[in-house]
């Protein structure tokens, strides 16, 4: 069958999609093009195959691996459905809503020491190699035990924060929630450019919000990320010299991630008074001094 080549513009969009670098505008454009010309998805298939021929490789994984992964995910205390839901997507097809959100929360309450099993098993194997070394083994076991305790505590905190996120979404309908995506400021020096992303989902009625950070640089112990609301002149709220109110401080894990519930100031009840939401890097002992410029910002 002879297939007509797509236009140069379509090819460029499809290549961007396959390489994973479409801008939001290009994403919208491609979505429109796919609606008009569904055959373009064949081009996606072909181009994906090319990328993998050059840069991918496949092997059949062992049969038990799938069950291990599904069991590990099912037993984790912070299942996926606890985090804020995505906006409608480029290739979204209508799907029935699931009741699994509620089930997921119930499952999480039952989460026990089982959730750490895969990591424990791996760590146990590593520790066993040290057993012949007597004293070193005891030290390794102590470190291991402290590590597990720390891990479990961290997971519990994350589960509580995730519970609040789910609670926020269930208390207010999605239309009542305000979501702000923060980007690098236009005048940021290239060297300071942030590749991470932060979204803040605010429930103005409850003055609560969920901060979701991805891909931020982990900071040293002396520094902390600070989340600010910059308000308009005359807004009925106490501000610092930069017309800002410190909402919260936070850190990210080694992968640059953080999901955190935060209380927002009353100025969010009249969002017209909020001029911008920004993130700066401040001294951990005195973030309120607000000495740095924004690394990420959303202008309202």
């Amino acid at each position: 069958m002879i297939r007509l080549m797509p236009s140069e513009t379509d090819q460029n969009l499809i290549a961007g999609y396959i390489l994973g670098d479409l801008s939001p505008e290009e994403g919208r454009l491609l979505k429109q093009r796919l609606l008009v010309e569904p055959a373009l998805s064949d081009e996606m298939t072909a181009l994906q195959a090319v990328l993998e021929t050059a840069y991918g490789t496949e092997s059949t994984p062992p049969a038990h691996l799938k069950d291990n992964i599904l069991a590990a995910v099912a037993n984790r205390p912070t299942p996926l459905w606890a985090v804020p839901q995505p906006q409608p997507n480029l290739l979204q097809a209508p799907l029935p809503q699931s009741s699994a959100q509620r089930e997921g929360r119930e499952g999480r309450e039952e989460a026990s020491a089982e959730e750490t099993r895969p990591r424990r098993a791996r760590t146990r194997q590593a520790a066993s190699r040290w057993l012949p070394y007597g004293f070193s083994a005891a030290a390794a076991i102590l470190v291991f035990a402290l590590g597990i305790q720390n891990y479990t505590l961290r997971q519990s905190v994350q589960a509580l924060q995730a519970d609040l996120a789910t609670e926020l979404a269930s208390r207010s309908g999605p239309e009542a929630m305000l979501t702000f995506a923060l980007d690098a400021p236009e005048n940021a020096p290239v060297i300071d450019e942030q590749t991470g992303e932060v979204t803040i989902t605010v429930d103005p009625a409850q003055l609560e919000a969920v901060l979701n950070a991805q891909g931020l640089q982990p900071l040293s112990e002396e520094k902390v990320y600070a989340l600010w609301a910059v308000v308009r002149e005359g807004a009925f709220v106490t501000t610092d010299a930069k017309n800002a109110v410190l909402i919260a401080t936070f850190n990210v894990d080694g992968d640059g991630q953080q999901t955190q519930a935060v209380a927002v100031p009353s100025v969010f009840q009249n969002v017209a008074d909020v001029k911008a939401i920004a993130i700066t890097i401040e001294s951990a002992i005195a973030p309120q001094q607000h000495q740095s410029s924004p690394i990420l910002i959303h202008q309202l």
Binding site: G20, M44, L51, T78, P79, P86, L90, N212, Q214
Partner: peptide
């Protein structure tokens, strides 16, 4: 499964 780092608007899941 745990982190929403993939964005279907930007590109293919397989490449991600």
């Amino acid at each position: 499964a745990e982190r929403a780092t993939y964005d279907p608007d930007r590109g293919s899941l397989r490449t991600f």
